[in-house]
Write a protein that binds this DNA or RNA. Structure first.
Lengths: 248, 248
DNA sequence: GTTTTTATTAATGGATCCAATAAAGCCTAA
DNA sequence: TTAGGCTTTATTGGATCCATTAATAAAAAC
């Protein structure tokens, strides 16, 4: 699974997330191989990998198709993320944080505080917040010292709109979004306080609820087929910055 | 991923679980292909699949090795299973059971009650209990109508001693084990009662705690390297009946 | 005697080739 | 004209071949 394979997986993943390959689009091995200029071998491996990630669905005898992700699927995935990160926070509280974890979490919280002195975040601010947010969640999960949590989350990691690495925001309403992220940041503060004081159950509850902050407590999470559309911008290896845009 | 692939995956999985391939055993493509009488292609796919399942670990440039599963790994996996099945029970309570789910759960509980009129279960009884137990957990997860739970559990499903499909018991102490399973069966009763009466939080708590019943509330879960050894007997496609035996 | 460099071997990753199967379209018969 | 069967084509699954890389061992030099 070297260069060729990774190239195919990354390219296909991006094409799916960007909407270039829409839901229900059929993917056959030979046309895909020709389009990407590689042989069928890495394509096969990539298809299987993306199927595991939940981005592709196997059609018996007819190749694969791009999975349709409904808003219900996203809500389900967020519930699961909530209980798993809740468990991580509780175990982190029970096992205690290392010196370096305490230091880095404190530093991340301070960096966030500095960001939220402004009333309205810029897109650059958001990128900083996004990086900080990802690292924050990563530390909590590491601190749980529970390999099974990481494994169970791996599936969710690749579901674009439910991933820890996803951050959805409405570009046209940045003042409101700033308040939303400031609230999420307060949740981070409380979670760290609970963990550092050995309040496992409280930490668990906060992180479980915090999962709902990802899509912004919208009554029904918007998805590709609704009147609003979520678009992935600024995708790095495993992180998505998502912008909410109006259809047409 | 047709006959050949499935044959290789199934065979390797069984060889790992039975201990024929011990932890840390190295697996290279060519010798494995020759031993199983297939080409390298299905072997490659099988290795990747088993890596995803957590049974194999990739060695950079040196193929794969059989993953070592520590007792801590098993406890971790059980914690994760607990929160996920807890979530499933809560959502089942919130969404309600269908007529057929109610009927089947009731029937499964009655069948269990009948089993536990005896003071000491036979091995045949245990097989019946095992089948009943698996179906019970399956229905709860289906009733949650949350696809992400199933996906998140799939990794655990293949970890032999933490799977829903695993049932460990000590053959030399069947009277005690009978009491243990009778207690687990009581938990089933309470979980169903809670779900049917819309008590989501209670159902969640019961099922979360119930995950610990799998390995029998032992102070430290025994694993392959301890003085006691868990052996997989009676392995069907995705179910393991595990017997606790003394080493040597 | 030890260390470093080079050569050889083995093992993985990628490409192409072959076979088997399934689907679709066309032709024939009723 | 319609339905059923047959043929052809397309697509996946499996095998083999080729190249690249890494590791180990041996030889030479310090």
């Amino acid at each position: 699974m070297s260069t060729s394979c990774n190239y195919v997986i990354t390219t296909l993943r991006q094409m799916i997330l960007s909407g270039e390959l829409p839901a229900s689009a059929r993917l056959a091995e030979i046309p895909t191989a020709e389009k990407l200029g590689v042989s069928r071998t890495p394509i096969r491996i990539a298809f299987r990998t993306l199927e595991q990630e939940g981005l592709l669905t196997k059609l018996p005898g007819r190749g694969y198709e791009v999975s349709s992700v409904s808003s219900a699927d996203i809500e389900d995935a967020l519930e699961v993320r909530g209980v798993l990160e809740g468990l991580a926070a509780r175990q982190a509280a029970e096992k205690g944080l290392s010196e370096s974890q305490q230091a880095e979490l404190t530093q991340l919280l301070q960096a966030g505080d500095k960001l939220f002195t402004h009333d309205c975040l810029t897109e650059t601010d958001l990128e900083h917040y996004h990086a900080m947010n990802r690292r924050f969640h990563q530390i909590i999960i590491e601190a749980a010292q529970n390999s099974a949590i990481q494994a169970a989350l791996s599936r969710n990691e690749h579901l674009p709109f439910a991933s820890v690495s996803a951050l959805a925001f409405d570009k046209n309403n940045m003042a409101h979004e700033t308040k939303r992220f400031a609230f999420a940041h307060q949740q981070h503060h409380h979670a760290v306080f609970a963990i550092m004081n050995g309040q496992g159950a409280r930490a668990e509850g906060i992180m479980r609820e915090h999962a709902n902050a990802t899509l912004g407590y919208t009554p029904s999470a918007p998805h590709r087929d609704s009147h609003e559309r979520l678009t992935v911008i600024n995708q790095t290896k495993y992180s998505y910055l998502i912008m909410r845009v109006k259809n047409r």
